[in-house]
């Protein structure tokens, strides 16, 4: 009897503690950490068959980390994003399991945008993946996009797109010829790519990240359109976005969802202080 009462009292105090305890935990300062993973070759030897699991784990880790970057939690400690660590982890993942699509997908969804001049590296990764995932049209599609959008290598881009078209049997890719890449504006190309990616994305965090990017590009596009109209009417380049607003070409300054501020560079191109990446301002 006494024991029963004691036990019930214990359970009662557990409930009494767990309520404020878990609400405190929900609000406490957290550090979004990527952790450390040994080189793929070592992991391979150590884990044998489990390497595929390890590969997936690495991707999951990067995913969680990336998810944490996308969420802008108030109570999170702001630390500069560990892009080299993420990239190392992804590269480990594909070396452990070259078929791991999630790894390629994540690389395309994050680094290529957020890390300056990483497109060349990512394309190497994608070409490595193409050797294994010979049926997959996504990899050449990604590589083609990167070539056109980041590297301005329109011939390679067309080559990749041709491959993607062959693999998918989708005529859309064939229309993306080298000439198309030349003629389409950069921002437009980005929006087109992101649109197709956003629809196929399964993970909410990744979709959110695409959505944010599309919003940024659409907003940038608004300014670019205004700049073009300004040029036509005034025959001269505008100096600032404020000038566009004061002369009635733009209603208000569009918001950069990355938290930066849009500005016009010297050649009239639209840029942002965030460099279109989370944590971009601190870099």
């Amino acid at each position: 009897m006494i024991r029963k009462v004691l036990f019930i009292a214990l359970l009662g105090s557990y409930v009494a503690v767990i309520v404020p305890f878990s609400s405190y935990l929900g609000n406490r300062s957290i550090v979004n950490k990527l952790g450390y993973m040994p080189e793929a070759e070592i992991v391979k030897f150590a884990l044998g068959d489990l390497r595929y699991l390890a590969s997936q784990w690495a991707v999951f880790k990067v995913m969680l980390y990336f998810g944490g970057m996308v969420d802008n939690d108030i109570n999170k400690l702001k630390l500069p994003p560990e892009y080299p660590g993420m990239s190392r982890m992804i590269s480990n993942a594909v070396r452990l399991d070259p078929y791991n699509m999630d790894a390629y997908y994540l690389a395309q969804a994050t680094f290529v945008w957020d890390v300056k001049d990483s497109a060349k590296e990512i394309n190497k990764l994608l070409i490595y993946g193409m050797r294994y995932r010979t049926w997959d049209y996504y990899l050449p599609f990604f590589a083609g996009f990167n070539s056109a959008y980041f590297l301005h290598d329109y011939n390679s881009a067309a080559e990749f797109m041709k491959k993607a078209a062959e693999l998918s049997g989708d005529p859309l890719f064939t229309t993306l010829s080298a000439r198309y890449f030349h003629e389409a504006g950069r921002t437009e190309l980005g929006i087109m790519f992101i649109d197709s990616m956003e629809h196929s994305a399964k993970d909410e965090k990744v979709r959110t990240s695409y959505h944010t990017r599309k919003e940024a590009l659409l907003n940038a596009q608004k300014i670019t359109d205004a700049v073009n109209r300004y040029r036509e009417k005034q025959n001269v380049d505008p100096n600032t976005i404020e000038e566009l607003i004061s002369k009635g070409f733009l209603n208000k300054v569009p918001v950069d969802p990355y938290g930066g501020k849009f500005y016009l560079s010297k050649n009239g191109r639209v840029e942002s202080t965030s460099k279109f990446a989370f944590g971009g301002q601190s870099r």
Partner: peptide, 28 residues
């Protein structure tokens, strides 16, 4: 560990709740 390594304040509320949690959970 976060507040030991980086400049984050140690939450006294956190210390107390965690201590209570430890006591109750371990006893159970």
């Amino acid at each position: 560990k976060v507040s030991a390594i980086y400049p984050v304040a140690l939450s006294s509320q956190g210390v107390i709740y965690t201590l209570l949690y430890f006591l109750v959970y371990t006893t159970i």
